[in-house]
Design a protein around this nucleic acid. Structure first.
Lengths: 219, 219
DNA sequence: CTATTATTTTAGGCTTATCTAAAATAATAG
DNA sequence: CTATTATTTTAGATAAGCCTAAAATAATAG
Protein backbone atom coordinates (compact mmCIF):
# COMPACT_ATOMS: atom_id res chain seq x y z
CA UNK A 1 0.00 0.00 0.00
CA UNK A 2 2.28 2.76 1.28
CA UNK A 3 5.98 2.69 1.95
CA UNK A 4 7.36 2.73 5.47
CA UNK A 5 8.68 6.19 4.79
CA UNK A 6 5.34 7.55 3.73
CA UNK A 7 3.68 5.99 6.78
CA UNK A 8 6.27 7.60 9.02
CA UNK A 9 5.64 10.99 7.48
CA UNK A 10 1.89 10.58 7.96
CA UNK A 11 2.28 9.59 11.58
CA UNK A 12 4.67 12.46 12.29
CA UNK A 13 2.37 15.00 10.64
CA UNK A 14 -0.57 13.65 12.61
CA UNK A 15 1.30 14.04 15.90
CA UNK A 16 2.43 17.56 15.04
CA UNK A 17 -1.11 18.56 14.12
CA UNK A 18 -2.28 17.13 17.43
CA UNK A 19 0.35 19.08 19.38
CA UNK A 20 -0.07 22.44 17.72
CA UNK A 21 -3.70 22.05 16.72
CA UNK A 22 -2.94 23.75 13.46
CA UNK A 23 -1.20 23.36 10.10
CA UNK A 24 2.27 21.89 10.27
CA UNK A 25 5.39 23.59 8.94
CA UNK A 26 8.24 22.05 7.02
CA UNK A 27 10.97 22.68 9.58
CA UNK A 28 9.02 21.09 12.43
CA UNK A 29 8.41 17.96 10.40
CA UNK A 30 12.05 17.86 9.32
CA UNK A 31 13.10 18.04 12.95
CA UNK A 32 10.60 15.39 14.01
CA UNK A 33 11.90 12.99 11.38
CA UNK A 34 15.56 14.00 11.71
CA UNK A 35 15.87 14.76 8.01
CA UNK A 36 16.54 17.90 6.02
CA UNK A 37 13.97 20.43 4.90
CA UNK A 38 14.80 19.88 1.23
CA UNK A 39 13.87 16.22 1.62
CA UNK A 40 10.63 17.15 3.28
CA UNK A 41 9.73 19.53 0.46
CA UNK A 42 10.23 16.73 -2.07
CA UNK A 43 8.06 14.35 -0.14
CA UNK A 44 5.34 16.92 0.49
CA UNK A 45 4.92 17.33 -3.25
CA UNK A 46 4.52 13.60 -3.71
CA UNK A 47 2.14 13.23 -0.80
CA UNK A 48 0.13 16.16 -2.03
CA UNK A 49 -0.20 14.52 -5.44
CA UNK A 50 -1.49 11.41 -3.73
CA UNK A 51 -4.02 13.56 -1.84
CA UNK A 52 -2.62 12.59 1.53
CA UNK A 53 -2.03 16.21 2.55
CA UNK A 54 -3.16 19.64 1.45
CA UNK A 55 -0.14 21.69 0.60
CA UNK A 56 0.70 25.02 -1.02
CA UNK A 57 4.25 26.15 -1.63
CA UNK A 58 5.80 27.89 1.34
CA UNK A 59 2.62 27.60 3.39
CA UNK A 60 1.84 25.05 6.06
CA UNK A 61 0.23 21.72 5.28
CA UNK A 62 -2.19 19.33 6.92
CA UNK A 63 -3.54 15.84 6.46
CA UNK A 64 -6.54 15.22 4.24
CA UNK A 65 -9.25 12.89 5.49
CA UNK A 66 -7.53 10.09 3.64
CA UNK A 67 -4.15 10.92 5.15
CA UNK A 68 -5.59 11.17 8.63
CA UNK A 69 -7.29 7.82 8.31
CA UNK A 70 -4.01 6.13 7.43
CA UNK A 71 -2.15 7.94 10.21
CA UNK A 72 -4.68 6.80 12.78
CA UNK A 73 -4.50 3.23 11.58
CA UNK A 74 -0.72 3.28 12.01
CA UNK A 75 -1.14 4.60 15.53
CA UNK A 76 -3.67 1.87 16.21
CA UNK A 77 -1.24 -0.80 15.04
CA UNK A 78 1.63 0.70 17.01
CA UNK A 79 -0.28 0.82 20.27
CA UNK A 80 -1.80 -2.63 19.92
CA UNK A 81 1.64 -4.13 19.34
CA UNK A 82 2.92 -2.30 22.42
CA UNK A 83 0.19 -3.92 24.48
CA UNK A 84 1.19 -7.31 23.13
CA UNK A 85 4.87 -6.73 23.83
CA UNK A 86 4.28 -5.65 27.40
CA UNK A 87 1.32 -7.79 28.46
CA UNK A 88 2.15 -11.00 26.63
CA UNK A 89 5.88 -11.01 26.04
CA UNK A 90 6.84 -9.33 29.29
CA UNK A 91 8.77 -6.38 27.91
CA UNK A 92 9.08 -3.27 30.07
CA UNK A 93 7.12 -0.22 28.95
CA UNK A 94 10.42 1.54 28.41
CA UNK A 95 11.64 -1.11 25.96
CA UNK A 96 8.88 -1.44 23.40
CA UNK A 97 8.93 1.70 21.34
CA UNK A 98 11.52 0.75 18.74
CA UNK A 99 10.07 -2.68 18.16
CA UNK A 100 6.55 -1.29 17.80
CA UNK A 101 7.92 1.25 15.30
CA UNK A 102 8.79 -1.71 13.12
CA UNK A 103 5.68 -3.79 13.78
CA UNK A 104 3.35 -0.88 13.00
CA UNK A 105 4.25 -1.18 9.32
CA UNK A 106 3.13 -4.78 8.88
CA UNK A 107 0.38 -4.70 6.27
CA UNK A 108 -2.66 -6.76 7.09
CA UNK A 109 -6.00 -5.47 8.24
CA UNK A 110 -6.92 -8.94 9.34
CA UNK A 111 -3.80 -9.22 11.50
CA UNK A 112 -4.48 -6.00 13.40
CA UNK A 113 -8.08 -6.87 14.06
CA UNK A 114 -7.24 -10.37 15.23
CA UNK A 115 -4.51 -8.97 17.45
CA UNK A 116 -6.99 -6.46 18.86
CA UNK A 117 -9.39 -9.26 19.69
CA UNK A 118 -6.62 -11.47 21.11
CA UNK A 119 -5.60 -8.67 23.46
CA UNK A 120 -9.20 -8.12 24.54
CA UNK A 121 -9.83 -4.85 22.69
CA UNK A 122 -7.64 -2.73 24.97
CA UNK A 123 -8.45 0.98 24.97
CA UNK A 124 -5.01 2.19 25.99
CA UNK A 125 -1.41 1.18 25.42
CA UNK A 126 1.10 0.54 28.22
CA UNK A 127 1.78 4.28 28.47
CA UNK A 128 -1.88 5.15 28.80
CA UNK A 129 -2.21 6.43 25.23
CA UNK A 130 -5.65 5.73 23.78
CA UNK A 131 -5.99 3.07 21.10
CA UNK A 132 -8.39 4.04 18.28
CA UNK A 133 -10.97 1.42 17.45
CA UNK A 134 -11.35 -0.28 14.10
CA UNK A 135 -13.19 2.80 12.78
CA UNK A 136 -10.45 5.14 13.86
CA UNK A 137 -12.39 6.58 16.80
CA UNK A 138 -10.59 7.44 20.03
CA UNK A 139 -12.33 7.05 23.36
CA UNK A 140 -12.69 10.42 25.10
CA UNK A 141 -10.34 10.75 28.02
CA UNK A 142 -10.70 12.84 31.18
CA UNK A 143 -7.00 12.79 31.81
CA UNK A 144 -5.27 16.02 32.82
CA UNK A 145 -1.62 16.80 33.47
CA UNK A 146 -0.75 16.29 37.10
CA UNK A 147 0.23 19.95 37.20
CA UNK A 148 -3.45 20.85 36.72
CA UNK A 149 -4.71 18.66 39.53
CA UNK A 150 -5.87 20.76 42.50
CA UNK A 151 -3.89 20.22 45.70
CA UNK A 152 -5.51 17.60 47.90
CA UNK A 153 -7.69 16.01 45.18
CA UNK A 154 -7.43 12.25 44.87
CA UNK A 155 -6.54 10.93 41.38
CA UNK A 156 -5.12 8.00 39.46
CA UNK A 157 -2.02 7.85 37.31
CA UNK A 158 -3.44 7.30 33.82
CA UNK A 159 -0.72 8.05 31.30
CA UNK A 160 2.59 9.66 30.43
CA UNK A 161 3.18 12.73 28.30
CA UNK A 162 6.93 12.24 28.19
CA UNK A 163 7.58 8.87 26.52
CA UNK A 164 11.37 8.94 26.80
CA UNK A 165 12.82 5.75 28.15
CA UNK A 166 14.81 7.72 30.70
CA UNK A 167 11.58 9.06 32.20
CA UNK A 168 9.90 5.66 32.01
CA UNK A 169 12.71 3.89 33.77
CA UNK A 170 12.76 6.62 36.41
CA UNK A 171 9.10 5.78 37.06
CA UNK A 172 10.08 2.12 37.27
CA UNK A 173 12.77 2.99 39.78
CA UNK A 174 10.40 4.88 42.07
CA UNK A 175 7.86 2.08 41.62
CA UNK A 176 5.10 4.29 40.36
CA UNK A 177 2.93 2.54 37.80
CA UNK A 178 -0.13 3.20 35.66
CA UNK A 179 -3.32 2.98 37.70
CA UNK A 180 -1.65 3.88 40.99
CA UNK A 181 -3.39 6.43 43.23
CA UNK A 182 -1.88 9.88 43.54
CA UNK A 183 -2.56 13.12 45.41
CA UNK A 184 -0.69 16.40 45.55
CA UNK A 185 0.09 17.14 49.19
CA UNK A 186 1.81 20.46 48.66
CA UNK A 187 3.69 22.65 46.24
CA UNK A 188 6.91 24.35 47.26
CA UNK A 189 6.75 27.92 46.03
CA UNK A 190 10.51 28.37 46.06
CA UNK A 191 11.32 25.90 43.22
CA UNK A 192 7.84 24.71 42.26
CA UNK A 193 8.61 21.19 43.46
CA UNK A 194 5.69 18.95 44.43
CA UNK A 195 5.20 16.64 47.33
CA UNK A 196 3.04 13.73 46.18
CA UNK A 197 1.28 11.07 48.14
CA UNK A 198 1.20 7.66 46.43
CA UNK A 199 0.03 4.16 47.31
CA UNK A 200 0.32 3.15 51.00
CA UNK A 201 0.78 6.75 52.19
CA UNK A 202 4.18 6.85 50.52
CA UNK A 203 5.42 10.37 49.88
CA UNK A 204 7.83 11.56 47.23
CA UNK A 205 9.11 14.93 46.11
CA UNK A 206 9.32 15.63 42.42
CA UNK A 207 10.22 18.48 40.08
CA UNK A 208 7.86 20.68 38.11
CA UNK A 209 9.10 18.90 35.00
CA UNK A 210 7.77 15.67 36.48
CA UNK A 211 4.26 16.98 37.09
CA UNK A 212 4.08 18.18 33.51
CA UNK A 213 5.05 14.75 32.25
CA UNK A 214 2.28 12.60 33.63
CA UNK A 215 -1.46 12.46 33.20
CA UNK A 216 -3.99 11.69 35.90
CA UNK A 217 -7.73 11.18 36.16
CA UNK A 218 -9.53 12.62 39.14
CA UNK A 219 -11.32 10.29 41.46
CA UNK B 1 21.51 -4.53 10.38
CA UNK B 2 20.60 -5.90 6.96
CA UNK B 3 17.99 -4.68 4.54
CA UNK B 4 14.84 -6.65 3.82
CA UNK B 5 16.15 -7.29 0.34
CA UNK B 6 19.42 -8.70 1.57
CA UNK B 7 17.61 -10.92 4.05
CA UNK B 8 15.36 -12.20 1.30
CA UNK B 9 18.35 -13.06 -0.87
CA UNK B 10 19.99 -14.89 2.03
CA UNK B 11 16.89 -16.90 2.77
CA UNK B 12 16.38 -17.78 -0.88
CA UNK B 13 20.00 -18.87 -1.30
CA UNK B 14 19.75 -20.98 1.85
CA UNK B 15 16.65 -22.74 0.55
CA UNK B 16 18.22 -23.40 -2.84
CA UNK B 17 21.35 -24.81 -1.21
CA UNK B 18 19.14 -27.04 0.88
CA UNK B 19 17.23 -28.27 -2.15
CA UNK B 20 20.15 -28.94 -4.46
CA UNK B 21 22.73 -29.65 -1.77
CA UNK B 22 25.27 -27.74 -3.78
CA UNK B 23 26.34 -24.30 -4.94
CA UNK B 24 23.54 -22.12 -6.25
CA UNK B 25 23.43 -20.60 -9.71
CA UNK B 26 22.33 -17.12 -10.70
CA UNK B 27 19.35 -18.13 -12.81
CA UNK B 28 17.83 -20.30 -10.09
CA UNK B 29 18.07 -17.50 -7.59
CA UNK B 30 16.63 -15.02 -10.09
CA UNK B 31 13.69 -17.34 -10.64
CA UNK B 32 13.17 -17.89 -6.91
CA UNK B 33 13.04 -14.15 -6.28
CA UNK B 34 11.19 -13.27 -9.50
CA UNK B 35 13.85 -10.79 -10.55
CA UNK B 36 16.28 -10.60 -13.44
CA UNK B 37 19.70 -12.18 -13.62
CA UNK B 38 21.41 -8.84 -14.09
CA UNK B 39 19.97 -7.66 -10.78
CA UNK B 40 21.17 -10.83 -9.09
CA UNK B 41 24.70 -10.33 -10.42
CA UNK B 42 24.77 -6.83 -8.93
CA UNK B 43 23.61 -8.02 -5.56
CA UNK B 44 25.97 -11.01 -5.51
CA UNK B 45 28.90 -8.63 -5.81
CA UNK B 46 27.68 -6.59 -2.88
CA UNK B 47 26.93 -9.62 -0.75
CA UNK B 48 30.29 -11.11 -1.59
CA UNK B 49 32.00 -7.91 -0.44
CA UNK B 50 30.12 -8.18 2.83
CA UNK B 51 31.34 -11.78 3.16
CA UNK B 52 27.83 -13.18 3.16
CA UNK B 53 28.51 -15.48 0.22
CA UNK B 54 31.52 -16.90 -1.58
CA UNK B 55 31.31 -15.96 -5.22
CA UNK B 56 33.48 -16.07 -8.32
CA UNK B 57 32.38 -14.62 -11.61
CA UNK B 58 30.32 -17.02 -13.70
CA UNK B 59 30.63 -19.79 -11.14
CA UNK B 60 28.09 -20.81 -8.55
CA UNK B 61 27.98 -19.25 -5.12
CA UNK B 62 27.16 -20.34 -1.59
CA UNK B 63 26.59 -18.87 1.82
CA UNK B 64 29.52 -18.26 4.14
CA UNK B 65 29.16 -19.25 7.78
CA UNK B 66 28.08 -15.69 8.51
CA UNK B 67 25.51 -15.72 5.70
CA UNK B 68 24.14 -19.07 6.77
CA UNK B 69 23.76 -17.92 10.35
CA UNK B 70 21.68 -14.95 9.27
CA UNK B 71 19.58 -17.06 6.89
CA UNK B 72 18.76 -19.53 9.64
CA UNK B 73 17.81 -16.77 12.03
CA UNK B 74 15.37 -15.40 9.45
CA UNK B 75 13.84 -18.85 9.03
CA UNK B 76 13.56 -19.11 12.80
CA UNK B 77 11.72 -15.81 12.99
CA UNK B 78 9.42 -16.70 10.11
CA UNK B 79 8.39 -20.04 11.58
CA UNK B 80 7.90 -18.73 15.10
CA UNK B 81 5.63 -15.98 13.81
CA UNK B 82 3.66 -18.56 11.84
CA UNK B 83 3.08 -20.51 15.03
CA UNK B 84 1.84 -17.35 16.73
CA UNK B 85 -0.46 -16.46 13.87
CA UNK B 86 -2.05 -19.90 13.75
CA UNK B 87 -2.05 -20.94 17.42
CA UNK B 88 -2.77 -17.62 19.04
CA UNK B 89 -4.52 -15.45 16.49
CA UNK B 90 -6.47 -18.25 14.84
CA UNK B 91 -5.29 -17.85 11.27
CA UNK B 92 -5.47 -20.86 8.97
CA UNK B 93 -2.18 -22.49 7.99
CA UNK B 94 -2.90 -21.47 4.41
CA UNK B 95 -3.18 -17.77 5.35
CA UNK B 96 -0.02 -16.99 7.25
CA UNK B 97 2.78 -17.04 4.76
CA UNK B 98 2.63 -13.47 3.49
CA UNK B 99 2.26 -11.98 6.94
CA UNK B 100 5.16 -14.03 8.28
CA UNK B 101 7.22 -12.85 5.30
CA UNK B 102 6.84 -9.36 6.71
CA UNK B 103 7.22 -10.22 10.38
CA UNK B 104 10.42 -12.19 9.79
CA UNK B 105 12.27 -8.93 9.11
CA UNK B 106 11.55 -7.30 12.46
CA UNK B 107 14.92 -6.73 14.06
CA UNK B 108 15.17 -7.67 17.70
CA UNK B 109 16.92 -10.68 19.12
CA UNK B 110 15.08 -10.16 22.35
CA UNK B 111 11.71 -10.17 20.62
CA UNK B 112 12.30 -13.50 18.87
CA UNK B 113 13.52 -15.18 22.01
CA UNK B 114 10.63 -13.90 24.09
CA UNK B 115 8.20 -14.97 21.38
CA UNK B 116 9.82 -18.41 21.34
CA UNK B 117 9.35 -18.69 25.08
CA UNK B 118 5.78 -17.37 24.92
CA UNK B 119 4.91 -20.02 22.36
CA UNK B 120 6.49 -22.75 24.49
CA UNK B 121 9.60 -23.31 22.37
CA UNK B 122 7.80 -25.04 19.52
CA UNK B 123 9.99 -27.28 17.38
CA UNK B 124 7.89 -27.07 14.23
CA UNK B 125 5.75 -24.47 12.50
CA UNK B 126 2.11 -25.07 11.46
CA UNK B 127 3.29 -26.82 8.29
CA UNK B 128 5.58 -29.19 10.16
CA UNK B 129 8.77 -27.35 9.19
CA UNK B 130 11.39 -27.52 11.92
CA UNK B 131 12.18 -24.36 13.89
CA UNK B 132 15.89 -23.88 14.59
CA UNK B 133 16.73 -23.14 18.21
CA UNK B 134 18.43 -20.00 19.44
CA UNK B 135 21.80 -21.40 18.34
CA UNK B 136 20.57 -22.13 14.85
CA UNK B 137 20.39 -25.88 15.35
CA UNK B 138 17.57 -27.87 13.75
CA UNK B 139 16.15 -30.92 15.50
CA UNK B 140 16.75 -34.06 13.42
CA UNK B 141 13.59 -35.28 11.79
CA UNK B 142 12.64 -38.81 10.79
CA UNK B 143 10.06 -37.56 8.33
CA UNK B 144 9.89 -39.13 4.88
CA UNK B 145 7.72 -38.33 1.88
CA UNK B 146 4.53 -40.36 1.93
CA UNK B 147 5.62 -41.82 -1.40
CA UNK B 148 8.46 -43.59 0.42
CA UNK B 149 6.26 -45.12 3.10
CA UNK B 150 5.92 -48.90 2.58
CA UNK B 151 2.38 -50.09 1.87
CA UNK B 152 0.60 -51.09 5.04
CA UNK B 153 2.92 -49.30 7.48
CA UNK B 154 1.24 -47.06 10.02
CA UNK B 155 2.46 -43.45 10.10
CA UNK B 156 1.59 -39.90 11.13
CA UNK B 157 1.18 -36.84 8.95
CA UNK B 158 4.11 -34.64 10.06
CA UNK B 159 4.59 -31.94 7.46
CA UNK B 160 4.02 -30.60 3.97
CA UNK B 161 6.55 -30.32 1.17
CA UNK B 162 4.23 -28.28 -1.04
CA UNK B 163 3.44 -25.05 0.87
CA UNK B 164 1.11 -23.58 -1.75
CA UNK B 165 -2.11 -22.28 -0.31
CA UNK B 166 -4.06 -24.24 -2.92
CA UNK B 167 -2.61 -27.48 -1.57
CA UNK B 168 -3.10 -26.41 2.03
CA UNK B 169 -6.73 -25.51 1.54
CA UNK B 170 -7.25 -28.80 -0.28
CA UNK B 171 -5.99 -30.53 2.87
CA UNK B 172 -8.39 -28.40 4.89
CA UNK B 173 -11.22 -29.47 2.63
CA UNK B 174 -10.53 -33.17 3.04
CA UNK B 175 -10.06 -32.59 6.78
CA UNK B 176 -6.61 -34.03 6.94
CA UNK B 177 -4.47 -32.25 9.50
CA UNK B 178 -0.96 -32.40 10.93
CA UNK B 179 -0.60 -35.24 13.42
CA UNK B 180 -3.35 -37.36 11.87
CA UNK B 181 -2.69 -41.10 11.38
CA UNK B 182 -2.14 -42.36 7.85
CA UNK B 183 -1.51 -45.68 6.11
CA UNK B 184 -1.13 -46.58 2.45
CA UNK B 185 -3.69 -49.27 1.67
CA UNK B 186 -2.77 -49.81 -1.95
CA UNK B 187 -1.19 -48.27 -5.01
CA UNK B 188 -2.94 -48.42 -8.36
CA UNK B 189 -0.33 -49.39 -10.94
CA UNK B 190 -2.26 -47.93 -13.84
CA UNK B 191 -1.98 -44.24 -12.81
CA UNK B 192 0.09 -44.46 -9.63
CA UNK B 193 -2.81 -43.25 -7.52
CA UNK B 194 -2.83 -44.13 -3.84
CA UNK B 195 -5.60 -45.34 -1.58
CA UNK B 196 -4.94 -44.01 1.90
CA UNK B 197 -6.50 -44.90 5.20
CA UNK B 198 -6.89 -41.98 7.59
CA UNK B 199 -8.43 -41.38 11.02
CA UNK B 200 -11.57 -43.44 11.83
CA UNK B 201 -10.95 -45.93 9.00
CA UNK B 202 -11.74 -43.22 6.48
CA UNK B 203 -10.37 -43.95 3.02
CA UNK B 204 -9.39 -41.49 0.30
CA UNK B 205 -7.81 -41.81 -3.10
CA UNK B 206 -5.10 -39.35 -4.04
CA UNK B 207 -2.72 -38.66 -6.91
CA UNK B 208 0.98 -39.40 -7.05
CA UNK B 209 1.53 -35.65 -6.83
CA UNK B 210 -0.21 -35.71 -3.46
CA UNK B 211 1.99 -38.43 -1.97
CA UNK B 212 5.07 -36.48 -3.00
CA UNK B 213 3.76 -33.36 -1.27
CA UNK B 214 3.42 -34.57 2.29
CA UNK B 215 5.79 -35.89 4.91
CA UNK B 216 5.07 -38.63 7.40
CA UNK B 217 6.80 -40.26 10.34
CA UNK B 218 6.48 -44.01 10.76
CA UNK B 219 4.82 -45.37 13.84
C1' DC C 1 36.55 -28.95 -32.08
C1' DT C 2 33.39 -25.77 -33.60
C1' DA C 3 28.70 -23.94 -33.87
C1' DT C 4 24.70 -23.17 -31.43
C1' DT C 5 22.36 -22.42 -27.20
C1' DA C 6 22.18 -21.10 -22.45
C1' DT C 7 23.88 -18.38 -18.79
C1' DT C 8 26.11 -14.58 -16.81
C1' DT C 9 27.94 -10.11 -16.87
C1' DT C 10 28.36 -5.31 -18.40
C1' DA C 11 26.47 -0.90 -19.56
C1' DG C 12 23.23 2.46 -19.19
C1' DG C 13 18.60 3.89 -17.11
C1' DC C 14 14.86 4.50 -13.67
C1' DT C 15 12.69 5.43 -8.96
C1' DT C 16 12.72 6.34 -4.04
C1' DA C 17 14.54 8.58 -0.39
C1' DT C 18 18.08 10.88 1.07
C1' DC C 19 21.94 14.66 1.01
C1' DT C 20 24.46 19.55 0.28
C1' DA C 21 24.68 24.05 -1.51
C1' DA C 22 22.58 27.80 -3.50
C1' DA C 23 18.51 30.52 -4.68
C1' DA C 24 14.03 32.21 -3.57
C1' DT C 25 10.65 33.56 -0.46
C1' DA C 26 8.67 34.93 3.99
C1' DA C 27 9.02 36.93 8.54
C1' DT C 28 10.79 40.25 11.68
C1' DA C 29 13.40 44.07 13.72
C1' DG C 30 14.65 48.55 13.54
C1' DC D 1 9.61 50.05 4.55
C1' DT D 2 13.88 48.07 4.15
C1' DA D 3 17.59 45.09 5.86
C1' DT D 4 18.54 41.06 8.15
C1' DT D 5 17.32 36.55 9.49
C1' DA D 6 14.73 32.41 9.05
C1' DT D 7 12.43 29.22 6.22
C1' DT D 8 11.46 26.92 2.09
C1' DT D 9 12.42 25.55 -2.43
C1' DT D 10 15.33 24.38 -6.40
C1' DA D 11 19.22 22.08 -8.45
C1' DG D 12 22.38 18.63 -8.69
C1' DA D 13 24.26 14.18 -6.33
C1' DT D 14 24.26 9.64 -4.22
C1' DA D 15 23.01 4.74 -2.90
C1' DA D 16 19.91 0.82 -3.13
C1' DG D 17 17.29 -2.14 -6.03
C1' DC D 18 15.43 -2.82 -9.86
C1' DC D 19 15.05 -2.84 -15.29
C1' DT D 20 16.40 -3.74 -20.62
C1' DA D 21 19.58 -4.62 -24.18
C1' DA D 22 23.90 -6.02 -25.61
C1' DA D 23 28.31 -8.34 -24.86
C1' DA D 24 30.92 -12.00 -22.90
C1' DT D 25 31.41 -16.46 -21.24
C1' DA D 26 30.22 -21.30 -20.51
C1' DA D 27 27.92 -25.53 -21.83
C1' DT D 28 26.43 -28.75 -25.23
C1' DA D 29 25.41 -31.03 -29.65
C1' DG D 30 26.98 -32.63 -33.74
Amino acid sequence: MHTFTEENYLKAIYKLEEQTGDTVINSDLAKALSIHSATVTDMLKKMSQKKLITYEKSKGFKLTGKGKKIAISIIRRHRLWEVFLVNNLGFGWDEVHDIAEQLEHIQSEDLVNRLDKYLGHPNADPHGDPIPNVNGEFAKSKAIPLSNLPVGKQAKFSGVIDHSSSFLSYLNKIEFALGDPIRVKSIEEYDNSYTLQLKNEREIVVSSKFVNSILVIEG
